[in-house]
Each structure stands twice: as structure tokens, then as C-alpha cells.
């Protein structure tokens, strides 16, 4: 993949993340903040499909944007064929792992409510 294509994705995910996080914060502020963290409310959120999709999109966008940012920082820190190859593989692997783990959490929480 060309660097310009990667950076296009980087900028688009950054801007999109800003928007979805803003929606997420606004939704948190609908009710008093401490109430929104109560167990029932949190589980109810995970059962709300549009909200679950919002959380999943935040997870994906921030993971892509964040890990590419980390790759860029590490690329600038040191140069060398092995180093550059390793950090590319490692950041992609970490990105997939975080998205996988986060998605699993969302699915488990979603199933928790449904199973009750």
C-alpha cells in the first residue's frame, strides 16, 4: 500500500473518530454522568443496537488511527529494514488484536442482557 493511501485512511479515521466520539459523549450526557455508569444502564447501552454499532465504530476507527500513528512515531524514531518491517507487522497485529478483544467484549455484554 502506498504511504499516501495509508495517510488518507489515517486522516479519514481521525476525523470520523472525532465525530463518533462527540456523539458518544453527548449520549453519555443525556442523563447525569454517575447514573450513566450504573450497571443496568451500561448493560442497557450494550443492548441498544445503534449504540453498539457506534461503540464498535469508535473501536475500529481509533484502533486504525492510533496504531498507524504509533507506526509513524516508531518509523521516525529509528530507521532500518528489519526495524521498519517489524513495526509494520507488530502494529497491524496489535490493531487486529485490540479490535478483536473489544468486539468480543461488546458481543459478550450484548449477549449478557439478552440472556437475562
Amino acid at each position: 500500500m502506498r504511504e499516501s493511501q495509508i495517510m488518507k485512511i489515517h486522516y479519514v479515521t481521525g476525523i470520523a473518530a472525532l465525530i463518533v466520539v462527540a456523539v458518544h459523549i453527548m449520549m453519555r450526557l443525556i442523563m447525569p454522568y454517575n447514573m450513566s455508569l450504573e450497571y443496568e444502564n451500561v448493560v442497557a447501552n450494550y443492548h441498544n443496537v445503534p449504540y453498539v454499532l457506534l461503540l464498535e465504530s469508535i473501536l475500529i476507527l481509533i484502533a486504525i488511527h492510533g496504531f498507524n500513528g504509533l507506526r509513524v512515531i516508531l518509523l521516525e524514531m529509528r530507521q532500518g529494514r528489519n526495524w521498519e518491517g517489524s513495526i509494520t507487522v507488530l502494529t497491524i497485529a496489535a490493531m487486529i488484536a485490540i479490535i478483536g478483544y473489544g468486539t468480543r467484549t461488546i458481543l459478550v455484554a450484548n449477549g449478557l442482557e439478552m440472556g437475562q
Binding site: 502506498r2 504511504e3 499516501s4 495517510m7 509513524v72 518509523l75 521516525e76 530507521q79 521498519e84
Partner: peptide
């Protein structure tokens, strides 16, 4: 010319 600067250590740094 665009290709010359479009790499890991190119213009986007």
C-alpha cells in the same frame, strides 16, 4: 514525481 516522494520516509513525514 508524486511517486518519488510517496514512501514511508517521504513527504507524509
Amino acid at each position: 514525481r508524486l511517486e518519488l516522494v510517496d514512501d514511508r520516509h517521504g513527504i507524509f513525514r
